[in-house]
């Protein structure tokens, strides 16, 4: 039993890592008032570029760096369109996803070695090994948490840091102010445009790391559409986490674990239909959204979406 729980937890954490990075990035982006629906495309681009770099250079650090640069650039396009050009954020985000999906499969067929018909699919590159923490690393339960790859360990650190930054620092306060009421924030001397640019680009970089984790650690190698819709799950996760990086961990564990659990239930021969379990995380998201609205309408505290989310910021005409 302990063995089963340990292996379930291990795969849940591993499956959740890519979601966690992208979710934290998206929370920061949305907190600044920019909705980025391009996550799926960015994760795919992060995956394909990081894998290509790791294959040719054998440097995981460089692979991660390039993935972040590429997705930061994609986020920059989104930022330019939505912040400077004041375009519809939904349309721009969807274009980025469609663009990233197409370009990543195109690159996957062109960046590979000549011996493999220029395909990246079917070649093996270097990937992040699991590192076991000495002493406690092979205890039951502990081994699930302390026998993971380096990106997952970094994720453990990022959750509290991201929470601390958002709620306990001045910069975090500024960020939240920009997302809630950009006009007031501007009056307080915060540069709204610059803030939004910065956090959109940071969000993109995090999506890139998420994609790189898929291609370099979770399912090592490149497959077309390797994300399998994870970018969209991230959008749901942000809502589930109520735009709070601390709560993101619960959501990623739920979403990441549900598949692992579903397959194990099938292997154990239970009668619960797999499709029912598969829709559970979405059901919980809808439920969370409903409860949120009810709570906000009858309660006093505001915990939901940033008020200015999705709205372009126009300075008053001079």
């Amino acid at each position: 039993m302990i063995g089963l729980i340990t292996s379930l937890l291990a795969i849940t954490i591993s499956a959740g890592t890519s979601l966690l990075y992208a979710t934290i990035g998206e929370i920061y982006t949305e907190r600044s008032g920019i909705l980025n629906l391009g996550i799926e495309g960015m994760m795919l681009m992060g995956a394909v570029t990081s894998f290509a770099v790791s294959y040719y250079t054998n440097s995981l650090f460089l692979a991660l760096l390039i993935a972040m640069v590429v997705t930061a650039f994609m986020a920059l396009i989104h930022a330019f369109l939505t912040i400077t050009m004041k375009a519809n954020q939904v349309v721009s985000g969807l274009s980025i996803t469609i663009f990233g999906t197409g370009l990543s499969s195109f690159l996957g067929k062109r960046l590979g070695p000549e011996s493999n018909n220029f395909n990246l699919y079917g070649v093996n590159g270097k990937n992040f090994p699991d590192i076991q923490v000495p002493l406690v690393g092979d205890w039951p339960i502990f081994s699930a948490i302390l026998n993971q790859d380096i990106l997952t360990y970094i994720a453990y650190l990022i959750i509290p840091l991201a929470w601390f930054f958002m709620y306990k620092t001045k910069k975090g306060l500024n960020l939240r102010a920009v997302g809630e009421n950009p006009r007031t924030a501007e009056a307080m001397g915060i540069n709204v445009i610059r803030t939004r640019y910065i956090y959109t680009v940071i969000g993109g970089m995090f999506a890139g790391i998420g994609g790189a984790h898929l291609a370099l650690a979770y399912t090592p190698g490149w497959n077309e559409h390797i994300t399998g819709g994870r970018g969209w799950i991230v959008i749901a996760l942000v809502i589930f986490a109520m735009w709070n990086p601390g709560k993101a961990i619960l959501g990623t564990l739920l979403f990441g674990g549900i598949n692992a659990i579903q397959f194990r239930l099938q292997a154990a021969g239970t009668d619960i239909p797999a499709s029912l379990l598969n829709m559970l995380p979405y059901l919980v998201t809808v439920l969370a959204l409903v409860l949120l609205t009810v709570y906000e309408n009858y309660g006093k505290r505001k915990i939901g979406a940033p008020s200015a989310l999705g709205k372009p910021y126009m300075k008053e005409d001079k």
């Binding site: 898929l214 979770y218 390797i226 399998g228 994870r230 598949n259 692992a260 397959f263 099938q266 292997a267």
Partner: peptide
């Protein structure tokens, strides 16, 4: 890819 891997691991 990810789903099919998870199924195999299970």
């Amino acid at each position: 890819p990810t789903q099919e891997r998870e199924a195999a691991v299970a």
